[in-house]
Design a protein around this nucleic acid. Structure first.
Length: 624
DNA sequence: GCCGTTTTCGGCCCGACTGTTTTCAGTCG
């Protein structure tokens, strides 16, 4: 069992314990250990082999035993018992903002409600308010929350889906009879939320995929098993779609299954307008032919390009590209990916290669026809990370450790941006602590060669629009990110007033996670994104793509709008742990989906140029 | 459940906001 799967199991245990009413500190212990496992460099299995599980921070005797059981048997009696005790629907309810474990338990015990549907009905029928301490506002929060959850129902954030897809890819490659495996669908396109994980597998007759895969510990049930297709659901509820094809159909199927459906249909229409059929493009597989038929039948009405169907959401590994590099993280096993074929299909249409991230029918085909596809940013273009936390606030690592991890990634610079004083839960820094931190950074600057540490801050935009430090404090930093961490429920006018004040502030260089959304968990606060972008353009403020897979904020479309307005972007991880610097990958994916080129992203720039661009330094000499 | 220049028990991130209440519990960051 992988660290990620162990982490998921521990998280579930923590959630179920919380719903049972266990003491908060015990619950937190499970969640903390889960996070530690997620961020662990070494495989827990290796630690177990040398009897060192308790070296994992937050893992003691008890949790070590549970982890050992999961590692050796793939199961946990403790977890299975919890699952029997707590209805699974209750765990879903934890995601409703404003509803905690306590309220959920009360609703369960008082009304016997165990599913989201029952909860919604009870709220509509105003039965929630019959419970003590609950009223109309709670019912409204429930209705809103259920609505939000329904939207993302059956969907998982890319931060969950991608690691799972990579894991499955490697596992499937080891199955007898498997020639090649590729991740496809929305995972391959880098979508922020995905409905299922799609894999295309080239197999020989007599392969054992359908026999072996259902026995994987993370597989909960087999939804469908056919000669050319296997559909599974994991214990986490993620749907896995596996398309099995003979090796000669692999490339065309991967192309098909990567989607999007809208993009595919535009290609078919384009081909038809030139008197070409999919077969002429080298795409004579049943799926392509069937879709071509559908597109041509719908033909003149121009209905092609609407939405996406689940079957079309399949795809594969990034294969070689013409004219554009793939993000390094998307590259599969080179030995298995030695026959780049997708560029060929585009070539047949007289088009340059269009990478998966652009295949959304958002003008990419027109741009390709005009020869104006962007030269998309890649992970290799990133020279630094301008938003991360250290032990001084709520990070887990020292500044030196964060710097070392950044250096290992080949970065030239980082900014340490801990929280400001008002964010007490995150141990925001007092002015005195800022001084101590500054001294440490100055000391490290002398000790460390090859990487520059900027002394930054993530300063809170307070509920009344003021920043959390006075100007004379703010002017001392090398770089200031301003972010909202409170007053999420304010009206748009109020939120925008705060944001505008921050954007106009002479010492605010970057606006952090501009909309405050948490994928699948929290809606953005009431903001007018276009207005933020216009204000950023006007004031010379940089906007962030927060690369944390929980946020991806700005999102792809907003990033593209920012580019159109000439607003520079910083792709930052907001890492609280050295290993989370790797989240840069998700930020770059989002940026690519937003058509960003290296030039649009300030942390691809040389440090001197970046510093000179900061509001605080414009017109002044560059700070050293 | 973890952890210990606070070490085998008693802390563990803590204060503000919100909704439902008339004095506070629950939730959140």
């Amino acid at each position: 069992m992988t660290n990620l799967e162990l982490a998921w199991a521990l998280t579930e245990m923590g959630d179920l314990l919380e719903l049972k009413g266990e003491e908060p500190f015990k619950v937190r212990a499970y969640h903390r250990a889960a996070r530690a496992l997620e961020n662990l460099e070494e495989e827990a299995a290796a630690l177990y082999a040398r009897d060192a599980l308790e070296e994992i921070p937050g893992v003691g005797k008890n949790l070590a035993k549970k982890i050992a059981e999961l590692l050796t048997t793939g199961r946990s009696a403790f977890l299975e018992n919890l699952r029997r005790e707590v209805p699974p629907g209750l765990r879903e309810m934890l995601a409703i903002p404003g509803l905690g474990s306590r309220s959920i338990r009360q609703i369960y015990q008082g009304l016997g409600i165990t599913t989201l549907e029952e909860l919604e009905t009870a709220a509509q029928e105003k039965r929630i308010r019959t419970l003590p301490g609950m009223g109309s506002k709670t019912e409204l929060a429930i209705l809103r929350g259920v609505e939000m959850l329904k939207e993302v129902r059956e969907q998982v954030p890319v931060g969950v889906a991608r690691p799972l897809a990579l894991l499955l890819r490697d596992q499937i490659l080891a199955i007898p009879g498997v020639e090649r495996v590729a991740i496809a669908g929305s995972v391959r396109r880098g979508c922020e939320m995905v409905g299922d994980v799609d894999l295309v597998v080239a197999v020989q007759p007599g392969n054992q995929v359908a026999d072996v895969m259902p026995r994987y510990p993370q597989v909960k049930e087999v939804l469908a098993s056919e000669p050319d297709r296997l559909s599974l659901r994991t214990t986490l509820g993620v749907k896995i779609e596996i398309i099995l094809v003979p090796p000669e159909d692999f490339a065309a199927t991967l192309f098909y299954a990567t989607g999007s459906k809208a993009h595919r249909r535009r290609l078919i229409s384009l081909a038809a307008s030139r008197g070409l059929g999919v077969a002429d493009l080298g795409l004579a597989t049943p799926r392509w032919l069937a879709e071509e038929k559908a597109v041509l039948a719908a033909g003149q009405e121009g209905t092609a390009g609407e939405g996406e169907d689940a079957a079309g959401e399949t795809g594969g590994l990034q294969i070689g590209a013409v004219g554009q590099e793939a993000p390094p993280a998307m590259v599969g096993r080179p030995a298995r990916e030695d026959q780049p074929a997708e560029p060929f299909f585009y070539q047949r249409l007289g088009l340059p290669y269009i990478v998966p991230e652009l295949r959304e029918d958002r003008g990419e085909i027109e741009a390709a026809l005009r020869g104006e596809l962007p030269r998309l940013i890649t992970l290799a273009d990133i020279r630094g990370d301008l938003h991360m936390h250290s032990r001084y606030s709520d990070g887990v690592a020292t500044i030196a450790a964060m710097a070392a991890a950044a250096q290992a990634r080949g970065y030239q610079y980082i900014a340490i941006t801990d929280h400001s004083r008002s964010l007490v839960v995150a141990r925001g820094l007092s002015v005195e602590q800022l001084k101590a931190q500054r001294e440490e950074i100055v000391r490290l600057k002398e000790e460390l060669a090859g990487i520059t540490i900027l002394a930054g801050i993530e300063v809170d935009i307070l509920a009344d629009g003021r920043l959390d430090y006075e100007d004379d404090v703010l002017k001392e930093f090398d770089l200031v990110i301003a972010s909202i961490h409170s007053g999420f429920r304010q009206e748009e006018e109020q939120v925008m007033t705060r944001l505008e004040a921050a954007l106009r502030h002479p010492y605010v260089d970057i606006l952090g996670h501009p909309t405050g959304r948490m994928l699948g968990r929290r809606r953005p606060y009431a903001v007018d994104v276009t207005r933020i972008i216009k204000l950023a353009a006007e004031t010379g403020t940089i906007l962030e793509i927060n690369a944390s897979p929980d946020r991806l904020d700005l999102n792809d479309t907003a990033a593209r709008l920012a580019k159109e307005y000439g607003v520079p972007i910083a792709i930052n991880t907001d890492a609280h742990d050295p290993n989370r610097l790797a989240d840069m990958e998700y930020g770059v994916l989002t940026a690519r989906r937003g058509w960003l080129e290296p030039e649009n992203v300030v942390n691809t720039w040389e440090l001197e140029r970046l510093l000179a661009r900061l509001k605080r330094n414009r017109g002044n000499c560059i700070k050293q």
